[in-house]
Design a protein around this nucleic acid. Structure first.
Length: 519
RNA sequence: GGCCGCGUCGCCAAGUGGUAAGGCCACGGUUUGCAAAACCGUUAUUCCCCGGUUCGAAUCCGGGCGCGGCCUCCA
């Protein structure tokens, strides 16, 4: 698999675009920081999972074998504080919020995560790591707590370009008397009475924030992971500290590529629990289809802030509708569902590469020999160009926004071809190569959209959700209108359509009859 | 104060050295009995401002203005 050599990733560590080369050829380990499960997910929590879900889909497409881990931090001060407010134990609060998180991911078609390790299931590994850090002189116990000593880590601050001296100078945090340096951070925290705790060499207690990620990533992905991801807000202190612990412990590089996604914002403010302006995912999904949210998250490049607004979602839904209408059209023309098409799962098997179809036979002729006056040949050539542009976008630091732009181009090309060839207006006169080309173009659309995790399942339209009574009533109105049209009583026909439009029922007349949909 | 990033059409948004993708909105046209949908076309000689480098810059460098993030919990 050589396709991978073209892939470039922006690495936070070096602040540069770098060619992607995994440690072990053909294999990729990804660790993405997941949520602390104390409050229901807000939209921002979905950004990383959706983006990395698409990233994994693309890496698989390129032929990599990918392991993708997202942790669940289920023990933390915030849980301890929140649980009693809800009359729950820490464990049951964690369970409840984790379920909420998982349900949301599922709705957003985030299906590529292999494991969700939980901090409380890795206490042993955490303790071992802390002990190792103490043994090596990087950490010190203090009255039941254990702290990481940043002064012992010569390159502390390298991820975020921070100077430990200045961290001290500018520390606004109240100085914890137990720490040697203000920048030191807790690896282990002693338990107060009544708090959940585990037995350790330093007494009853719980892991500090950061160490769970170091321990779990090492357990599941080894000392060095290929890609470590997370939100921009985790860069410091979370990732800086993770990196410091892990490298001090293993004496090996912790992650080859650090990828940080931009934060969700509304207006000019970032969205977060502390700002109090977060949109809870389950609430949002009552108003919008999950695919619209996924589409929103992929439309902006992952490193940029994502503009969130209700208007924006409605706007994007209108854009998605044009795709959905194309899928309906495909069904009318080819008598099969777009959603049943099996797009190639890897670049190797791509419809573009396969030698068993007319598309490829045409493309093999080479650009010069393609007859521009032959509509099928020029159509196939346009399709191929889309393919090249699409992969070029994703190769350039996973430019999903650019890739979606190409998907729009592709659907225009397909619609235009269907128009020009009269695929719907005179289906009897269509020659086989024309139909075959149309199908292959659509199959390519399927192949590419699957990489983004888009259009995996049909969007349940209002039509199918409604009762047979509603269907019947609308059909009745349509029959009456058809009758009027037949009699050239257009005034009455238009009156019926107008009344339906006012009710939100949009009609589309075509050769085979009248379709309707609810707006 | 330190570190990081951003400023591209009315709105959203790609592009980051070779002469401005795409979406939404708007306006024309083809099609339609009329619509809807689809398609075609129009809409930034110009990318916050000022300098510089270059044959050539939205893209690189310097300065300015504006906005945001991190430095404390945060995806």
């Amino acid at each position: 698999m050589n396709g991978n050599t073209e892939l470039k990733i922006f690495n936070t560590l070096t602040r540069r675009l770098e060619p992607f080369i995994p440690i072990e050829p053909g294999k990729v380990g990804i660790y993405l920081c997941g949520p602390t499960v104390y409050k229901p997910s807000h939209v921002g929590h979905m950004v990383g999972p959706v983006i990395f879900d698409s990233i994994k889909r693309y890496l698989k497409y390129l032929g990599f074998q990918v392991t993708f881990i997202v942790n669940i931090t289920d023990i933390d001060d915030k849980l301890i504080k929140e649980a009693p407010l809800q009359n729950l134990t820490v464990a049951s609060l964690a369970e409840k919020i984790t379920q909420d998180y998982w349900e949301n991911l599922k709705k957003l078609q985030v299906t590529q995560i292999d494991q969700f390790p939980k901090a409380t299931h890795h206490i042993q590994q955490i303790i071992e790591m802390i002990q190792g850090l103490i043994d090596r002189g990087y950490a010190y116990p203090m009255n039941g707590d254990v702290y990481f000593d940043i002064s012992k880590d010569s390159d502390y601050g390298k991820l975020c370009n921070r100077d430990p001296e200045q961290l001290e100078a500018g520390a606004r945090i109240e100085v914890n008397a137990k720490k040697k340096n203000p920048g030191d951070f807790a690896l282990w925290k002693s338990a107060k009475p009544g708090e959940p705790s585990w037995t350790s060499p330093w007494g009853e207690g719980r892991p500090g924030w950061h160490i769970e990620c170091s321990a779990m990533s090492r357990t599941l992905l080894g000392d060095t992971i290929d890609i470590h991801g997370g939100g921009l807000d985790l860069q410091f202190p979370h990732h800086e500290n993770e990196l410091a612990q892990s490298e001090s412990f293993t004496q090996k590089p912790f992650a080859r590529y650090w990828m940080h996604n931009g934060l969700m914002k509304t207006g000019n403010k970032k969205m977060s629990k502390s700002e109090g302006n977060e949109i809870v995912v389950t609430e949002l999904l009552k108003r919008h289809h999950p695919e619209t949210l996924r589409f929103l998250l992929l439309n902006t490049h992952y490193r940029s802030p994502i503009e969130y607004s209700e208007d924006r979602l409605r706007e994007l839904r209108r854009a998605l509708d044009s795709y959905y209408r194309f899928f309906d059209r495909y069904q009318r023309i080819c008598k099969e569902s777009f959603y049943h098409l099996e797009g190639s799962q890897t670049k190797q098997d791509s419809i573009i590469q396969s030698s068993k179809n007319s598309l490829n036979r045409t493309l093999e002729k080479g650009t010069e020999k393609i007859d521009p006056t032959n509509p099928v040949e020029s159509f196939l050539q346009e399709i191929q160009l889309c393919y090249q542009q699409f992969t070029a976008c994703l190769n350039e630091d996973f430019n999903t926004g650019g890739a979606i732009g190409i998907l729009f181009d592709l659907s225009s090309i397909l619609n235009r071809f269907a128009d020009q060839q009269g695929l719907e207006t005179h289906p009897d006169k269509i020659e086989k190569p024309v139909m075959e080309a149309f199908k292959q173009g659509t199959l390519l659309f399927r192949e590419l959209s699957q990489i983004l995790g888009l259009f995996i399942e049909p969007v349940s339209s209002a039509n199918t959700e409604n009762t047979t009574l509603l269907d019947g009533l609308i059909q009745l109105a349509l029959d009456l209108r058809q009758e009027a049209r037949k009699n050239k009583n257009f005034a009455q026909a238009d009156q019926i359509r107008k009344r339906l439009t006012e009710l939100g029922v949009v009609l589309e007349d075509r050769a085979g009859g009248t379709d309707w949909r609810i707006n």
